[in-house]
């Protein structure tokens, strides 16, 4: 089955990103496809490469990056939600005249149309939120 995933909450404060990760990993192990993971609302905060959790804890962002690299999962961060919350890639940082950017490897910034497209293309879209 082809799955789309929507994550609406940030890391650590909420478990939704953890649950979504475990769902994605289990789906792939069972032979399903993750067409796209879309990060919205505070979910965009999962994509910052500036998190530095204690070493005995899971690294939520790094786990997504590794999943994307190992299984070619498309991780998309909503641009409007990201700009509001200070998640920028290099080209957006330039465009917004900011000195730094912080989008983690494996993620890309794009529009809400990517979420709708996932809804159209996938057999199921699973929402992980509050």
């Amino acid at each position: 089955m082809k799955f789309g995933i929507l994550i609406n909450e940030g890391p650590y404060q909420h478990q939704s990103s953890d649950s979504a990760y475990q769902f994605a990993k289990a789906s792939i192990e069972k032979g399903h496809t993750i067409f796209r993971v879309f990060f919205y609302h505070d979910g965009v905060n999962n994509a910052t490469n500036l998190t530095a959790p204690p070493t005995d804890d899971r690294n939520v962002t790094l786990r997504w990056t590794e999943l994307a690299q190992e299984h070619d999962v498309d991780l998309v961060v909503c641009i409007a939600a990201a700009l509001r919350r200070g998640i920028l890639d290099e080209s957006e940082a330039k465009r917004q005249n900011k000195a730094n950017f912080n989008l983690a490897d494996g993620f890309r910034i794009s529009g809400l149309g990517q979420l709708i497209e996932a809804g159209i293309q996938c057999d199921r879209v699973v929402v992980f939120g509050d």
Partner: peptide
């Protein structure tokens, strides 16, 4: 919370997809 506002933003974008 921002859920309502950002949800409305999704709906407006979705309108362009003729679903």
């Amino acid at each position: 919370t921002i859920y309502a506002l950002e949800s409305l933003e999704v709906v407006l974008i979705a309108a362009a997809f003729e679903q």
